[in-house]
């Protein structure tokens, strides 16, 4: 659990570099954190989480996860995250972020027990602030 005076660590997992740039600037604009981690696919993110398990300062509090990525996509990330989450020492709130309006994706995400919510791109400042506030 993070202390109330500390701002949360936020992770962006997305292969789209332009989206990552837009998202991080939006989050910075919302003034909700100073620390944003960026990963280009699920595999990279998992590697980081496993490598830093127990190091509560380095692990993210909130993770924005894209669905459609090369190599390890959003769904595969969730499968693997399930296996390691107990070792991390810290709960991580996961939001799925995608441009897809496909009900198959939306429902699957909303029903997934590891996913807090599903957000459609583009994501506004207000939405980021609200979601991070929810996770706090």
């Amino acid at each position: 659990m993070r202390t109330p005076d500390r701002k949360p660590v936020i992770a962006l997992v997305d292969d789209d570099s332009i989206f990552r740039l837009i998202a991080s600037r939006t989050i910075q604009g919302a003034n909700i954190t100073e620390r944003i981690l960026q990963f280009t696919n699920g595999g990279e993110a998992l590697e980081y989480l496993e490598g830093n398990s127990g190091q509560l300062d380095l692990l993210p509090d909130v993770l924005f996860l894209d669905i459609n990525m090369p190599y390890v996509d959003g769904w595969m990330f969730l499968d693997d995250f399930e296996k390691i989450k107990s070792k991390l020492g810290k709960p991580i709130s996961i939001f799925m972020v995608s441009s897809s309006l496909d009900p198959e994706d939306v429902n699957r995400a909303k029903q997934h027990k590891l996913v807090n919510d599903y957000v459609v791109k583009p994501v506004s400042k207000e939405t980021f602030a609200k979601l991070v506030g929810m996770a706090a």
Partner: peptide, 24 residues
């Protein structure tokens, strides 16, 4: 379905970026 997926991910994503970039 495949087309729907392509439209959802491969077309909507960059268009969403374009909208965000324009407002930036």
């Amino acid at each position: 379905e495949e087309f729907a997926q392509i439209v959802s991910h491969n077309l909507r994503a960059p268009i969403g970026n374009i909208l965000s970039l324009i407002s930036f």
